[in-house]
Every structure is written in C-alpha cells, then in structure tokens.
C-alpha cells in the first residue's frame, strides 16, 4: 500500500509542484484583474524575481527565505515602475501595453547575458523543497483572503465593476490600482523565483507569452471573482496537459484548447463564482 502511494507521489510530485508555482502567477494576475486591470505584466515581474533569485543562488550564500523576499521585492519594484507608466492608460491600451511589456522583457533578457545568461539561460544547482513552496503558497493565499475581506478588497471590487461609480464614492482608482500592481509584482516575483528553482533552469523562454496566456486562462477558468479561483484554475491548467497526455498524447494541445474553449463558453465566470453561489443560495 505504502508503495503505491510512493509511486503516485513520485509520478505526480512535479505536477503538484508546477501547479503551485503556476498558482503564484495566477494569483499575481488575479491581483491586477480584481482591480480592473487586464495585465500580462506578471510575466515580467516573474522574470525580475526569477533571474535575481537564480543569480543569488549561484553567486551568494544567502538563505532561501531571504532570496524569496528579494525576488518578491524585485518584482514589486518593477511593477511599481511599470504602474507609473501604465496606470495613465485607458483599460484597453493597458492590456496592449502589458503585452508589449512581455515582448520587451524577452528582448532585454536575451541581450543582457551577464545578468540572465542570454539565450543559454542559467542552470541552478539547487532544488526547491516542496514544503517551502507549499508553505509560502498557503501564506499567500491567506493574504489574498484577508485582502478580499479588507477595505482594499471592497474598493477594488467597486473599481473593477464600475470605475466611474467607484470614484464618485470617493475611491481613488489609481491608488487602488497602484496597490494592486504592487501586490501583483511581489507575488509575480515570488512565482518567478519558484519557477526558476522548480525547473532548476531559467531562460528567456521561461517567462514569455505562453506563460502570460496560460496564467490568464488559469485565472478565468478558476474564477476571476474569487480569491481561491486562481489557485484552482492553475491546478486544473497544470493537470490538464498531464491528463491529456495520458489519454490522447498526440492531440494534447488540441485537447487543451478544446477544454479551455468549452469551459469558457459554458462557465464564462469560472469554476468558482461568488455571484452564482449567491444566486443559488437566494433561490433556495
């Protein structure tokens, strides 16, 4: 019996690990989305955290917790710089601009080989203890729960649903969105270093457009109106390819796409939708 459990664990430990790493990225995206910003910036913040973390592991003896902190802060600094430019834009342009940011990130990463290893990337000879990953994720999710209940969470919901109504109630949307970007940056930076350590490798491709798209898909799939939605979505989105691989190996991507499409059409507000839950409760 123990053997079976151990085998299963061996087979799925890395899937579980990646699901948790992706949860960080999904939460980073959710942080901005829940304040009304559709942004792919978490990829860039992840790159900041990932490469900084990789360099710290390679060239210093700083303990892991401090590396995590540094990576988070690096992401937050980048995000706040980005926010100063982006928050002036109207929402459609902001989405486009953040996509451009992802493209620029790749060019910068490719062209600063001293910092990032350039095309070849960096190998990191240090594994990521899963209990660290799990522990930090729990703390982060807890923080999102607390944020959701706080003044910030309430104001952010108003800004997201109707910005002009929110401002007329005295809420400064820029302030709310600046906080959202800061949170997104910190969590994205954390996700970046986790990803780097999980892969034991970082390269320009680690943080590129596919990551941006999968994480936003994860958030919407899990439920972009609920603090736990991103975690759920990231899990489904990480497990899906593994499952598809098992059943229809050669059609894996087509299966993924079709699954995403079906979910979006039939559950447009995601798996966890507080509004639907309330409606259901009201009907009872």
């Amino acid at each position: 019996m123990m053997d079976i459990v151990e085998d299963l664990w061996a087979a799925y430990a890395s899937t579980l690990g990646f699901a948790m790493v992706n949860a960080f990225f999904a939460l980073a995206t959710y942080a901005t989305l829940s304040a009304g910003i559709l942004s792919f910036g978490a990829v860039t913040f992840g790159a900041a955290g990932g490469f900084l973390g990789a360099q710290m592991v390679l060239h210093s003896t700083v303990p892991l917790p401090l590396i995590f902190l540094a990576a988070g802060l690096a992401g937050a600094v980048v995000s706040l710089l980005v926010a100063m430019i982006f928050l002036r834009l109207e929402s459609h342009w902001m989405a486009l601009a953040s996509l451009a940011l992802v493209l620029i990130t790749r060019v910068v990463v490719l062209n600063t080989p001293d910092l990032t290893g350039g095309v070849n990337g960096l190998s990191i000879p240090q594994p990521l203890p899963l209990e660290w990953l799990a522990g930090l994720l729990v703390v982060t999710v807890g923080a999102f729960y607390a944020l959701d209940r706080s003044w910030y969470g309430i104001a952010a919901r108003a800004v997201r649903e109707d910005t002009s109504v929110a401002t007329c109630m005295g809420i400064d949307p820029r302030r709310i969105q600046l906080i959202a970007m800061g949170i997104s940056g910190f969590v994205g930076g954390l996700g970046g270093v986790m990803m780097a350590l999980m892969l034991q490798f970082v390269s320009p491709d680690t943080f590129f457009i596919h990551v941006a798209f999968t994480m936003i898909a994860g958030v919407v799939l899990g439920g972009s109106h609920h603090w736990f939605g991103p975690v759920l979505g990231a899990a489904v989105f990480t497990a899906l390819p593994t499952v598809m691989q098992a059943f229809i190996p050669e059609m894996q991507d087509i299966g993924n796409g079709a699954a995403l499409l079906l979910i979006m059409i039939f559950l447009p507000r995601g798996l966890l939708d507080p509004r639907a839950m309330r409606l259901r409760r009201a009907r009872k």
Binding site: I154, R157, A158, E161, D162, V165, R275
Partner: peptide, 12 residues
Amino acid sequence: ISGMTALEQVIV
C-alpha cells in the same frame, strides 16, 4: 455594483 448584496452596496 454587480455581484454585491444590498448591504454590501451601502458598505462600499
């Protein structure tokens, strides 16, 4: 604001 109860609207 969509998704909020009557009470929550007033709280915002």
